[in-house]
């Protein structure tokens, strides 16, 4: 591969969104969103509760349909492809839910095995067990393998939720409020895990959050969803070096103690 090819590969957007609009009844949550997420890039999407942040990643993963606009993931338009194509595309997308969404009738081991055995039916039991052990080691929770989700702490649930997505070795990670409801120490552990996932699996990620520490520690670029539109994305320091009142309020609330 020559230098030109490497450059093209690095700059290739894995997610490309153009003029995306989504409304629920009379409430417009996304009103013409444009953004590109490059390969190997983490981008944090900030915004108030109910501003449509989670709706955005649900559209990217095909859980919701857009009203209009183009959403291309790994070169495929998610709302135009067939169900079978969407299923194949989803194997490359990891989705970490706000409340972890672990299957509460299954143990940690069964939760992790579930996506693997359903999508790679030719794997032997040993291969499945090895994969489970590997991702549990990645998230540092090997000892929880036989526990039920109800026996785990909030932080452990989040990490097992991330492990469940990693088992399919995704190219894209979508994190929905990864640190919400967690204490600062556990939040830092989750932030470190997000960075580790990016380095180890070479993933591109969208991190939906209203936690500025999380955004600062994990994102290459930051943007804010305001009134259904994105503010221009940029580095954390650049975005918050502003007198814009909405951004200042957001920043001051999160870092009030550091002032």
């Amino acid at each position: 591969m020559d230098t030109k090819d490497i450059y093209t590969e690095a700059k290739r957007p894995v997610i490309s969104i153009r003029d995306l609009k989504k409304s629920f009844g009379t409430l417009t949550v996304l009103n013409g969103i444009d953004i590109d997420i490059l390969k190997g890039e983490n981008i944090a999407v900030l915004g108030k509760s109910g501003s449509g942040k989670s709706v955005l990643i649900k559209i990217i993963s095909g859980l919701l349909k857009p009203d209009s606009g183009i959403v291309k993931v790994l070169g495929q338009e998610v709302d135009k492809i067939t169900a079978a194509e969407l299923q194949q595309l989803r194997l490359k997308i990891g989705f970490s839910f706000q409340n972890s969404a672990l299957y509460d009738s299954m143990s940690v081991k069964e939760n992790l095995a579930f996506p693997l055995v359903r999508n790679k039916r030719d794997l032997s039991i040993k291969e499945v067990n090895d994969a489970i052990e590997e991702v549990l080691n990645e998230v540092g929770l090997s000892q929880t393998i036989n526990q039920m989700p109800s026996e785990l702490s909030g932080g452990q649930k989040k990490r097992i939720g991330i492990a469940r997505t990693l088992i399919l070795k995704p190219e894209i990670m979508l994190y929905d409020e990864p640190t919400s409801g967690l204490d600062p120490m556990t939040s830092i552990e989750i932030n470190n895990l997000i960075n580790k996932v990016k380095q180890q699996y070479n993933t591109s990620s969208i991190i939906i959050t209203h936690d500025l520490t999380c955004a600062k520690q994990t994102a290459d670029r930051v943007t804010m969803l305001l009134n259904g539109k994105f503010l221009p994305p940029g580095k954390f320091e650049d975005v918050f070096n502003t007198q814009d009142q909405s951004l200042r309020t957001f920043y001051d609330y999160n870092f009030i103690n550091s002032k």
Binding site: K58, L63, R90, F114, R164
Partner: peptide, 21 residues
């Protein structure tokens, strides 16, 4: 109750995004 609980806690969505019908 079981499916309802799975629905409201996003477990059904989690199943869908992990490429399971």
């Amino acid at each position: 109750a079981e499916l309802g609980s799975m629905k409201v806690t996003e477990q059904i969505d989690a199943m869908e995004v992990s490429a399971t019908n």
